[in-house]
Amino acid sequence: MTEKVYLDSSLGFYGAGNIGYRWAVKVINAVSGRFVHVNTDCFFFLDLMDQHYYQNDFQGINTHFQTFQKILPRVEAVTVADFDQSYLLFKEYPNASPRLLLVGAIMKRLEIRKIVTTFSSGMEKFSFFERTNLMTVLNEMKLSRRVLEK
């Protein structure tokens, strides 16, 4: 499979507990090994740190940061050009969050259509990416559900 995919930060903190955490890491590992290009942006870490900080989980910041730092295959810088591109998306989707529009802008820059995310609310209305869920990714990679349980 040579298609590029974008990893949303929701994979990083999905579930927030130990089970969710191991599950997300396994999926990222699996995806990273199978796709030629896997990208996220450096705000992945910001989302991760914000989430843990607001839960007063300081140890979680450190643990997750170091784990994902090691396994994420390609982390894109965010530039002002991405903000300018996100403004074009804003005109089309004025109610979408700035962060989501920025993800869309970065995906456009990287010419990525597919996003792997556990975040679902309202994403289907955006034409700039095709949301795919974890099971779909695993099916496409011909990986069984058991990869999550190893």
């Binding site: 705000f43 910001l46 740190m49 300081f58 910041i61 450190n62 940061f65 730092q69 982390v75 810088a77």
Partner: peptide
Amino acid sequence: PLTVEDFDLSESLFKRTPH
């Protein structure tokens, strides 16, 4: 811009000032 190197450095700062 914000780069992964900025986040690497922020992690070092976090170890000194986790609050």
